[in-house]
């Protein structure tokens, strides 16, 4: 592969216009982490199983390890770095801290994105809906209980909008 095969892709990342220089089939995950140095998005498996690489594209949750950059031309991407508003954490982030939703923290960025996505779609999810909504994100540390609790507590706060 040589540099000449690289293409320019323009998209918005966390509200800012960015130009990516990448091979069209390069993974969005690598473009975010390596080129934009947004390392909050993690790689756990590289095959769409763990959800550690979750980001929002036009408001939909995706595994960025499965998305070729060519697909995001013109799209709006939101990563974990774009979730807190300056110093103010999102209610989901706050709830994860308060209720033990993060242990080792490696699944946490993806989990927070998934939780926010869930609350965007379902304002007050039932326990079954929470379980279902997070089933694409694996956590090996928590046994999920504290994550469920964090999500429930987050909906009790106002301001859950992204």
């Amino acid at each position: 592969m040589s540099e000449v095969n690289k293409v320019e892709i323009t998209c918005a990342v966390n509200g800012e216009e960015r130009v990516l220089h990448a091979y069209p089939m390069a993974r969005l995950l690598d473009a975010l982490r390596e080129e934009l140095r947004l390392t909050g998005t993690k790689e756990g498996c590289g095959e769409g199983e763990c959800g550690a690489c979750s980001v929002l594209i036009n408001g939909e949750i995706v595994n960025s390890c499965l998305v070729p950059v060519a697909q995001v031309a013109g799209a709006e991407i939101k990563t974990i770095e774009g979730i807190a508003n300056d110093q103010k954490l999102h209610a989901v982030q706050e709830a994860f801290i308060q209720h033990g939703g993060a242990q080792c923290g490696i699944c946490t960025p993806g989990m927070v994105i998934a939780a926010i996505n869930l609350l965007e779609k379902t304002e007050k999810p039932t326990e079954a809906e929470i379980r279902d909504g997070l089933a694409g994100n694996l956590c090996r540390c928590t046994g999920y209980m504290k994550i469920f609790e964090a999500v429930v507590r987050a909906c009790q706060e106002e301001d859950v909008k992204v």
Partner: peptide
């Protein structure tokens, strides 16, 4: 709360 909690939830 966990000492490094904030860094973990913000990436």
């Amino acid at each position: 709360p966990r000492k490094e909690g904030r860094d973990k939830v913000t990436g």
